[in-house]
Amino acid sequence: MIAGDAEAFDALYDRRQGGVYRYALRMCGSTALAEDITQDVFIEFMRDAHQFNPEKGTVAGYLYGITRHKVLRRIQRERSMVSMSDRDSDEIDLVMVKPRIRDLDPLENFSRQEMIDSVRHAVLALPIHYREVVVLCNLHEMSYEQAAEIIGIPVGTVRSRLNRARAMLADRLRSGQQSISTQTEVDSARYEL
C-alpha cells in the first residue's frame, strides 16, 4: 500500500473498516460521525502509512489508536453528542441496530430488543474513559492487554475501569427498570380508575 498498490489498500480497507466503523459508532452513537471518522482514519492511514511500525503493534491496533484519537476529538468538539440519555432515540436507534429476526416469540423478541436499547443508551451515557473500556472489552471482545495497548493505560487500570463501568451500567439499568415499572403501575392505576 505504501508503494501505491490500490488493490492492497482495498484489501486492507475491506478487512479493517468494520472494526473501525463499529468502534466509532459505539463510541459516538451517531452513524454520521462514525462514517466521517472512518473516512478520516483511512485517509490518515494512507497518508502516514510509513509511520506504522510492525514491531510496535498490529495494523488493527494502530487503526484503533487513530480511531480513538479522532473519536475523542470529535466528542470534545461536539459535546452534545456525548450524553445520549437526554436525547430522544432518533436516527441512531434506527440505523445503528437493525433488529435481526430471531426464532423467538414476539414478546420475548420485544423484551430482548428493549433490553438491548436500554444497554446501548446506558453505554453511551457512561463517561468516556469508562465507555471505551466497555466498548473495547465487552463489545469488541478484546483482551485487557489489547485494550490497554490501544488506550495507553496499564492492564490493571483497564480491569478496574471495566469493573466500575459495569457497576455504573447496572445502576443505570436498575434505575431505568424502576422508572419503567413505576410508569406501568401509574398507567395501571389510571386504567383502573
Binding site: 489498500f9 473498516q17 436500554s118 444497554v119 463489545l139
Partner: peptide, 28 residues
C-alpha cells in the same frame, strides 16, 4: 449476568454493521 447477556446481545446485533460503500468509493 443481565449486563453480560445484554452486552453480548448488543455486540451481536451490531457485530455485522459496516461502513457504507460510498466511503470506500471516496477513499479509493
Amino acid at each position: 449476568r443481565i449486563i453480560s447477556a445484554s452486552l453480548a446481545d448488543l455486540a451481536e446485533e451490531t457485530g455485522h454493521t459496516e461502513a457504507p460503500a460510498r466511503i470506500k468509493m471516496a477513499l479509493q
